[in-house]
Design a protein around this nucleic acid. Structure first.
Lengths: 230, 230
DNA sequence: TGGTGGGGAGTGGTCTGAGGACTTAGGAGG
DNA sequence: CCTCCTAAGTCCTCAGACCACTCCCCACCA
């Protein structure tokens, strides 16, 4: 087995076996090198791999630690790779988001948090008042994030946020011929979601959320805009 | 900015800008070092990070390449970190699986693939005939995988497979006092799913799949078994 | 007594240089 | 035309050195 793979398997095993739980500190690099039988370079590459996956955290001058192993944090690490996926794959991911967010929106409606509807209304008022693309994206994310968070499953919230972040790179809302029609349709979709939540109607909430995101999918398929780097 | 982060951002930018598309080959390491202004160690750690996320592939003796950037492949990279997530997080992930797999099962029922029902029936016959834990796990995965694949979204298939792989580490089916009852309930759940698919009934299929996975969640919450390393 | 600042040990981050292992393409030989 | 082999190209691993950062302890001062 290759040296880096040996180190990777060894580190993974130390966590999987329960020897090191969430937040635990690894031995210093020289000791790990000796124990795993690899050079420091190879060990560090293995550590980097696990760090990229959100399993390990290296703190300069302090040590190397097992992460909290929280699924939401781990999922958020995938943002980097998701942001590089081409359009065809993004459409598949949007179907995932549509299904999950419909579920989360229904859960939010069922939970009857009295503070949620006023918060969402405040966000929508700002959203409806602006025509700035970046501002639209920020407020849209805030709206959907608040709903998902109210759904009660942080993992679902993280997953939908990662996918939404990718969709945001395709600037549907750039000023153009279709801008007004798209913006109005989007605003109406948000209001429909809020209305369903305010009426404590989970089924209507799921339908409204699903329709809203399906609309985004249709725009992406039709416009096929170029993604914006950075 | 730290050296490794500089290299990471540079590599990422080369892909995001469109300079290197899926499958494209990177320049050799020495040239990348010079262009990005970092040493080979730092460059290699950055490459390892992106490789862990499924964005880059290094082939010994050949070169470094951009991956296919296929969302299903990228999601499968997740498997390593998901397998280390503790029970509490697994339950959150199972909710994701339940929602997605209900959706995929409904889609499979709606698609009316004539080969699907016979295939599933054959798998279930084998599954119902065995009491070996590993065999149960393998056939169960095969059953659900075939359904998700028929759902038509490879990303959903990959995501559910990763989560299912984690659930499999908690051996619900180890021989014990509850074994027979659990096995029978599980078998009945599979049959209900198959019946709904055979009857081309998407709503019933979604309900059956959702109930089947919800049952797994209940077992995990109740039994709280210890995960099996390796 | 309690707070504060500095210093030193511990630890991860980066660079350099060297040699080994693997892949691939192209030419020699059949 | 096919096969085998050579050689160039490229990534993989190791070793050693030095730098940067964190944290704890202790002397110092109010």
């Amino acid at each position: 087995m290759a040296a880096t793979d040996t180190a990777l398997a060894g580190l993974r095993q130390m966590i999987a076996s329960g020897a090191l739980g969430p937040g635990a500190k690894f031995p210093p690099e020289p000791e790990l090198c000796e124990r795993l039988g690899v050079s420091r370079s190879s060990l560090r590459e293995a550590v980097r791999s696990l760090a990229a996956l959100g399993v390990i955290e290296s703190r300069h001058g302090s040590g190397t630690y097992v992460s909290a192993l929280d699924p939401a944090e781990i999922i958020s690490r995938f943002s980097l790779s998701v942001q590089l996926i081409p359009l065809e794959g993004v459409l598949q991911l949007l179907e995932v988001r549509r299904v999950l967010e419909a579920h989360a929106t229904a859960a939010a409606a069922a939970r009857q948090d009295p503070d949620l509807a006023p918060l969402l209304d405040k966000i929508l008022e700002q959203l409806e008042a602006t025509t700035d693309a970046a501002e639209i994206q920020r407020l849209d994310a805030e709206f959907h994030d608040a709903i998902c968070a109210a759904g009660g499953n942080p993992t679902v919230t993280a997953l939908t946020a990662v996918i939404r972040g990718r969709g945001g790179h395709y600037r549907i809302f750039e000023p153009g011929s279709e801008f007004d029609a798209i913006k109005q349709t989007s605003d109406r979709g948000h209001r429909a979601i809020l209305a369903a939540i305010a009426h404590r109607d989970p089924a209507a909430a799921a339908t409204a959320a699903s329709a809203h995101i399906a609309q985004t999918e249709l725009w992406l398929r039709a416009l096929r805009p170029e993604p914006q780097p950075d």
